[in-house]
Design a binder for these strands. Structure first.
Lengths: 123, 123
DNA sequence: GTCTTATTTCACCGAACGGTTAACAAAGAG
DNA sequence: CTCTTTGTTAACCGTTCGGTGAAATAAGAC
């Protein structure tokens, strides 16, 4: 049995590689085969083949067969889960919970600081 | 120099671990320290300490100092980049570009296929 | 000072990762 | 059949990852 967390971990680690993200970006333009997908990269075909296998195993691409070519096409369904996961954190980067708060803490003169002192050294 | 792709890769690989995502989820409820964060997990403190270092290095948490404790708090800014990246793919899981299209291709009789020919042999 | 609490650093370990080269396989072309 | 094209598999290699136990550090309590 595959839990949702496992699938999400799998999706995210597949996405963590810039080569694989570039491949997905390219597949947004339409399906392509291994040789064409490999062209932009400074690595060998087996390396690309491995990346494609990772993407396929993560459900991010599907592959057909057409003569010798193995056309790949984008399967974005797992990205929906990523989107839903990250959406839960939206409030934390939108609503002054993040950098804005830090910025205000720095901009305000120390005398108006409320809350706990952080033992700032004078010097 | 850190490129945007590097940062995104770094963020995504930090998020690819379920323990680290659980820690972030917990920090949504408010800041906490290492010991408390470690409690739900069946692993040692150094392991949690490493996970926190990864999260900190990815800019996903910030850490203070309060007596012996090292309170951690969520920093969601990098998640915004993730959200923006994945948003580019939204159309592919929302608008019949994904599984629906596959379904239709299978259901339709081959003779009504439109669009670029891929050198389909008449069989 | 010593003791306790909280956390990190160190040294190690096995497994997974991202790449290579070389050999293999599948399918059309001659 | 052989030849070429396309892609995968196999074996290997160095690095990173996620964990451990043990020692070190930091700061308050006594």
């Amino acid at each position: 049995m595959t839990t949702a967390a496992d699938r999400l971990s799998n999706t995210l680690s597949a996405l963590a590689d810039p080569t694989r993200r570039a491949i997905l970006a390219r597949l947004m333009l339409g399906e392509s085969d291994v040789g064409r997908l490999a062209e932009p990269f400074d690595m060998t075909l087996p390396a690309i083949s491995k990346h494609l296998k990772v993407l396929e195993h993560a459900g991010l691409i599907a592959r057909g067969r057409e003569a010798q070519r193995r056309p790949c096409r984008l399967k974005a369904a797992p990205l929906r889960e990523v989107s839903e996961w990250v959406a839960a954190y939206r409030q934390f980067w939108e609503q002054r919970f993040d950098r804005l708060e830090d910025y205000l803490q720095k901009v305000q003169t120390p005398r108006q600081r409320k809350g706990k002192s952080h033992g700032r050294k004078g010097k």
